[in-house]
Nucleic acid binder design. Sequence first.
DNA 1: CGGGTGCTTGAACACTGTCAAGAATTGTGG
DNA 2: CCACAATTCTTGACAGTGTTCAAGCACCCG
Lengths: 228, 228
Amino acid sequence: MPNTVGKPYSVLDVFKALTEEEQQLVKDNQVHLTYRKREIVYKEGSKILGIYQVTKGKFKIYKTGVDQKPQIIAFTVPGDIQGYRSVLSNEPACTTVEALEESNVSFIPSEIIFHLVKHNPDFALLLIQQTCKELDRANSLITDIAQKTVKERVAEILLMLHDTFGTNKEGFININLTRDDISNIIGTATESVIRILRDFNSKNYITLENRKIKINDYKRIKLISESI
Amino acid sequence: MPNTVGKPYSVLDVFKALTEEEQQLVKDNQVHLTYRKREIVYKEGSKILGIYQVTKGKFKIYKTGVDQKPQIIAFTVPGDIQGYRSVLSNEPACTTVEALEESNVSFIPSEIIFHLVKHNPDFALLLIQQTCKELDRANSLITDIAQKTVKERVAEILLMLHDTFGTNKEGFININLTRDDISNIIGTATESVIRILRDFNSKNYITLENRKIKINDYKRIKLISESI
DNA sequence: CGGGTGCTTGAACACTGTCAAGAATTGTGG
DNA sequence: CCACAATTCTTGACAGTGTTCAAGCACCCG
């Protein structure tokens, strides 16, 4: 079975199941919000009043672990919805959502979401499928973190970032993460990430330019990520 | 936020949302199956044709990782449903389900589940909530494995097993796992688990009797699990 | 009661984390 | 837009945790 951690993030457009009337209902009740870099949409433990669909930009999703160290669980891509777990289960948020750059979201109040789930089974089904997708990814991440070495995980995360966010015209991955962020994805020390990136760089598998990363030898990185 | 890995498994009875008529439909279409120790309900990658509700016994749920090494993702308790992700997303199973002891399940064909999701929004909502619960647990497990030491994880897993499966009259945890199983939950070498269990045993925090484990000093184990 | 599986231990060593210090980059206020 | 402050990055040395390998023992099942 191929793991799914390394697969690019993809999104089910859960709203495609809506009737025109329902789409209008969403439109009439949604609120557009803008977040600047480092701004927080909601915090782990807080009550939230609706769901957030990302329309532009990127967010990191994390939990707070030992000694307040954040553990990054996921990233968003445009189209992603966040907060629906908390809303539908009527529980406090179990993760924090923080903007990585200037980003926009559309906020849709809980009542609307409940109304849609209650009246549109296709919408409910898509929501279940989206959750299952996330669960599958989480399970793969567990397996990876538990079994792979730090070097393998760094390689894997590079591929995932590459495939999820794409590259600019020079081939650099379209995301601005600190070394610390990367270490908080794979659960290791910042220095370890730095050393491994430097190592890949010196072997020319990747090119580093401050926070920008270009993958030169995709196949090689792939092999490393698969413990070969 | 308290982590949820250490919390005992609990189950939402998703079928409580059914009307009498629907319950009868399930009853008329379900099939009761028995599995002996080590028997496999379904394997990662296989197509499955319905969902399985555990009525008696215990199963371990795992993914296959590097070098075929299994990574245990979860255990079942009676009432748990398995396979619904695969069914509802119409994708191959992403985990393997294997009996830890003589166990019974009730198999309910996909069509019935789809019918219920389509016609009973409360059932759909419960399914979403159940999935969200599992997702939250998975996220906590990621954070734990990524950030805690092996000793802390062993302590945490002991508490989880204790709280999930309870103890017999002598105080031993009601589950029969090999050291290898335990190492496959927390992602470490079998020898490491053995050494740590021996250490806890020698300090009288726990009592070992072959595969049976009794927690003598719950508070101490709790402290260890929280990196204190 | 024999074979297989699982458990246990020791020793060597590899990997990763921690600490500290300095360099580079990024962000901010004027 | 510049200068300064703050943050992030980098490197080295070292410690410690955890893995691997190997060998022998214990338990359990047929």
